[in-house]
Design a protein around this nucleic acid. Structure first.
Length: 658
DNA sequence: GTCGAATCAATTTC
DNA sequence: CGAAATTGATTCGA
């Protein structure tokens, strides 16, 4: 464990952990479980199953990596050639917020069973919200602050989106929860790196992804909420002059010509407006700043705006520092003069935008991704293929298992009590409190319009396949995997899972598939293999939901975020499972699990669904907190001491898990 | 349903 | 202080 990994002695952050069990009777106790339903290794497979066996695949031999090239470069090693940069290193390592800032919420118990902690109604006059970020931290940030600010912004944005969705839609009115959340954070001092400077911004790492312009404002990467060029006025030899600090390329003008290290950037201004004709651009403001930066050889931060065709989402990737090599004037599409700047990426920086461009090529399949063993290890069972890749050694794939997208429950998990769906026609409308499914969620629609989870809850109630709402948005985790994933061989932790797509915070990733059993009925040894999910573990608490003090409505009731799994549920994915079985543990995870339930064939089951904690850049390993098993701890031990040695590498590594 | 174009009302900074 | 900069959700049209 690197750096200050030994700091995990601050017991105030981890103590007071209580059992996850509650007494809510969702599962009946009762009958002895029959044998599991299990597909034979070579079929025929019931729906949702396929064989997974890489060695028998004809594809496997085609794509077996060249052993001489199996040693892939590590971070900062030179790319093998200009157009094929090293892509094996995650764009950045992720760290979760640190309690030392005083603004994240690791205080209190893990499992708050009886919550309603009365808070004053959040009216403007009695709002005493503290950002927890002091003046110095606001001017100069660090990684923890940046991560914390982004988490708080997005939690608030999701909440505003949820509230807007619940209102009656007014035609012509455009909802902008991003602006509302951004403005709130600005006003309450939830921001950092306000001191503008060219070059590196403390706490923002190359490869970081953003989904909103406001996110980059709040962490000081790029302050204008709209303009593409950010600049700073400095004292020159004779007079003051502007120099550029950062630019955002919208992806509209830019012609990369295949080289991700070069950017041709168009100056600002001259655009046609409602009551304005397009005109020549002037050498002022941002254009002048870029010109001065060119003269001074002052490097500029570049943020690449990208349209992900598959996602229908625009993302921004921070691509590090570029040098302005030349500038010229060119006739634009409107026939008027525009300024053009040629920027070249400073050498020696880890790949970011280059990773994204390479992934776009992989998606076409030509040429196939290096180290590819199987293009789709699910054999079409998932609607999106899952690649199997090894770039580090000669291992040809994980041991055989049966791929299933679903959980197989033993008989003892069947619910005897009938479950109620809703009777909404077509789709359930957020804000419609007549909808029984929405009522079960406390009156809030659990997801925003684009399927992002708004907040963690003890349980999420989705509409069921038997509800009449066929096009309902409250069926996120039932619809299968939506991100393009790959299973890859890690350097020291076996196989792992990562995504080709950038993943937005709150996005559903996958469920934990496998064979579910009631832990109390199983031998302890069986629950101990490497492919077991166990709800009875002790989990490190964390805060993900919006802060009531930040929202401008009555948010008097703080909601529990921690799970209430009614029975000790364990899911074994040793023989049957999905991609979730490859997700490794981390003490600073970027994914969390959330219990979800919906009725199926008149039975109610609990599903373990995984969601992104923060925005996750492409090719970053997906990890969640495995927790530690209860029996392993003794009174004198750290309560989060586990049986397995941890190699997560996080600065806050607890040293063990499981 | 889907894909691009057009539309609309936003916010911070200089 | 007001103009400048362009976004992102939605609607519209082929």
């Amino acid at each position: 464990m690197e750096g200050n990994g030994g700091n995990y002695t601050d017991k105030t952050r981890v103590l007071d952990i209580k059992p996850l069990r509650t007494l809510r009777p969702v599962f009946p106790s009762g009958n002895q479980a029959p044998p599991f339903v299990c597909a034979p290794p070579f079929g025929p497979f019931p729906p949702g199953f396929s064989s997974f066996y890489p060695f028998s695949s004809s594809q496997a031999s085609q794509h077996t990596p060249d052993l001489n090239q199996a040693q892939y470069p590590q971070q900062h090693q030179q790319p093998q050639n200009a157009s094929e940069p090293s892509l094996v290193t995650p764009l950045r390592s992720f760290r979760s917020p640190d309690a030392s800032n005083g603004n994240t919420e690791l205080e209190g118990s893990t499992v708050k069973r009886k919550i309603p902690k009365r808070r004053p109604i959040a009216r403007p006059e009695n709002m005493n919200f503290e950002s927890g970020i002091n003046v110095a931290e606001r001017e100069n940030g660090n990684r923890e602050l940046v991560v914390s600010v982004l988490m708080r912004f997005d939690a608030l944005r999701r909440r505003f989106a949820q509230l807007e969705d619940a209102k009656e839609a007014v035609s012509g009115i455009i909802k902008r929860p991003d602006l509302k959340a951004g403005s709130t954070c600005m006003g309450r001092g939830v921001r950092t790196n306000t001191k503008k400077r060219p070059g590196i911004v403390a706490g923002v790492e190359i490869g970081d992804v953003f989904f909103f312009r406001f996110e980059m404002c709040l962490v000081g990467l790029h302050s204008p909420s709209m303009a593409g060029i950010d600049y700073l006025v400095v004292k020159g030899e004779t007079e003051e002059e502007p120099i550029a600090t950062s630019i955002v390329s919208s992806g509209y003008y830019d012609n990369d010509e295949g080289n991700p290290d070069v950017l041709i950037y168009t100056g600002q201004g001259g655009n046609a407006d409602k009551d304005k004709q397009s005109s020549d651009q002037k050498l002022e403001r941002g254009n002048l700043a870029l010109e001065k930066s060119l003269r001074r050889n002052s490097a500029v931060r570049v943020i690449r705006g990208l349209k992900e065709a598959s996602h229908n989402a625009k993302i921004y990737i921070y691509d590090g520092l570029y040098e302005i090599k030349e500038s010229w004037v060119e006739k634009g599409k409107s026939g008027h003069n525009t300024f053009k700047y040629k920027l070249v990426r400073a050498p020696g920086q880890p790949p970011a935008f280059a990773t994204w461009t390479a992934i776009q090529k992989w998606k076409t399949g030509l040429p196939s991704r290096q180290g590819l063993i199987l293009p789709d290890m699910t054999s079409g069972v998932e609607s999106i293929p899952v690649s199997l890749v090894n770039e580090v050694d000669t291992d040809n794939g994980p041991a055989y298992f049966t791929y299933s997208t679903t959980v197989k429950y033993s008989e003892s998990f069947k619910l005897t009590q009938p479950s109620f769906g809703c009777d909404c026609a077509n789709s359930c409308k957020p804000g419609n409190l007549d909808c029984h499914c929405i009522r079960k969620n406390g009156g809030d629609f659990p997801f925003t319009g684009n399927g992002v989870l708004v907040s963690r809850k003890p349980m999420i109630y989705e509409c069921s396949p038997s509800c009449p709402c066929s096009t309902c948005k409250n069926k996120v985790t039932q619809m299968g995997v939506k991100v393009r994933l790959e299973v890859f061989k890690t350097a020291n932790r076996g196989w792992g899972l990562r995504s080709w797509d950038a993943i937005r915070a709150g996005s559903f990733i996958c469920i934990y598939a496998g064979e579910a059993t009631d832990k109390s009925k199983v031998q302890q040894t069986m629950a101990d293999d490497d492919y077991t999910f166990d709800t009875t573990h002790v989990y490190n608490p964390f805060k993900w939901n919006y802060e009531p003090g930040l929202a401008d409505e009555d948010a008097s009731e703080e909601m529990s975020e921690e799970s209430e799994i009614p029975l000790p549920l364990i899911i074994s994915a040793k023989n049957v499972g999905n991609i979730a079985r490859f997700m490794n543990h981390s003490c600073s995870p970027n994914v969390f699990w959330q219990p979800v339930t919906y009725e199926n064939n008149s039975q109610l089951f609990v599903h373990v669904a995984f969601f992104a904690i923060a925005h996750i850049p492409p090719m970053t390993e997906l990890t969640y907190d495995y927790g530690v098993s209860r029996p392993s701890r003794t009174e004198n031990d750290n309560p989060l001491y586990g049986k397995k040695k941890c190699f997560c590498g996080s600065a806050y590594c607890r040293g063990s898990f499981g």
